[in-house]
Amino acid sequence: MRVLLFGIAKDIAGKPVITVDGVNTVAELKSYLYKTYPRLEQLRSLMIAVNKTYAGDGQVLQASDEVAVIPPVSGG
């Protein structure tokens, strides 16, 4: 599954899109991200958006979903 990265998360991963396989839920995706990019755990928060909506840890991920990593927002 393709996962979009923004802001500091993109800087930490070193790229705007990563491919993640073998994760079935948002919680599993977060575990994968923290293991692969430990600096993500130092952020104030880390949200996952599925199909452009904030998703809870239990949400199941489908291969066709648009998944994005949302570090702490700072607009305005």
Partner: peptide, 27 residues
């Protein structure tokens, strides 16, 4: 404006004379 700052996925990077930082990224 309060809600925009909390929920809208927009990120701000501040540039200083000696570096740069993503705002509010770390505790």
């Amino acid at each position: 404006i309060d809600t925009l700052k909390e929920t809208v996925p927009i990120w701000k990077k501040e540039y200083f004379e000696d570096g740069e930082v993503w705002v509010a990224a770390h505790p």
